[in-house]
């Protein structure tokens, strides 16, 4: 195959995936117009998504806070501007680093798991069995999952922000020698509610995106156990690209 043909085939492949996902997103959107959220399934999914992702998100956020302080620290020490640590930290963690890292980890933990689960159900014909019982897989499987991921991303961002503050304060004290009281003062003085809400809005959109993408890839699995592995791979890759693209536009919109 010539180079042009390969590039062309590659673009067609991507276009097919994007098209398939868009169609799927359309189905999900249509399903939200006549909401018939299966109550039990929704609670069940909220619980599972929360339990699965809480530890990893808390650990990630703790380290995200710590890492940010380490990086801000170089400037702070150089400029002897100890009183702005809290600001630099709060701004970057709440608006950008927090939602981004939490989103990527959430995609890896919950999104990948969700694709694997739905993919296994698909290759073992469980999804066909649902259809045979006149149960719409979108209503029964997809809607509760998408809703659970959206709601949990929002909740986890609040928890994550708290964990990040803990990590940040501890690192600022341990590594740079900034008194927690000074840190907290500069943090509360400069970091506004807007920064927090900005990050919260981003995370919620990421949750929606991860939900739709991971369900879409899961229900379109073909070809046994290797197919499930490939679908999980494709799902996390697509979610990561999606998170960055959406993040860019939200940063622009929510300035």
């Amino acid at each position: 195959m010539g180079l042009v043909a390969r590039v062309g085939a590659w673009f067609l492949g991507i276009a097919a995936v994007v098209g398939q996902l868009t169609l799927f997103a359309g189905q999900v959107a249509r399903a939200t117009l006549r909401p018939r959220l299966d109550g039990l399934e929704t609670w069940h999914n909220l619980y599972r998504v929360g339990v699965k992702s809480l530890p990893i998100v808390a650990v990630t956020a703790l380290f995200a806070g710590a890492i940010t302080v380490v990086q801000v620290g170089a400037y702070v020490v150089k400029l002897r501007a100890y009183e702005v640590v809290g600001w630099g930290f709060g701004f970057s963690v709440f608006r950008e680093i927090g939602p981004l890292l939490i989103g990527l980890m959430f995609s890896g933990r919950v999104g990948a798991n969700n694709t694997a689960e739905l993919g296994t159900m698909t290759v073992t014909e469980q999804v066909d069995a649902l259809r045979a019982l006149a149960i719409d897989p979108i209503d029964y499987l997809v809607m509760p999952r998408v809703f659970a991921m959206l709601a949990m991303m929002a909740a986890l961002t609040v928890i994550g922000d708290v964990a990040a503050i803990v990590g940040g304060v501890a690192t600022a004290y341990g590594l740079i020698g900034v008194d927690p009281y000074v840190f907290w003062n500069s943090f509360t003085e400069y970091v506004a509610l807007a920064d927090f809400l900005n990050g919260l809005a981003k995370s919620t959109v990421f949750g929606l995106l991860i939900g739709v993408v991971s369900c879409g890839f899961g229900l379109n699995v073909r070809g046994g156990a290797p197919g499930v592995g490939r679908a999980v791979n494709a799902s996390v890759v697509a979610s990561a690209v999606g998170i960055f693209v959406v993040d860019y536009f939200l940063t622009w919109l929510l300035q």
Partner: peptide
């Protein structure tokens, strides 16, 4: 089976991402 492969894949991305952050 296929559930095992999916689970292994999830573990890989979670633990290697976590290792990167740590």
């Amino acid at each position: 089976g296929s559930a095992g492969v999916g689970e292994a894949t999830t573990r890989a991305v979670v633990y290697s991402s976590l290792a990167v952050i740590v």
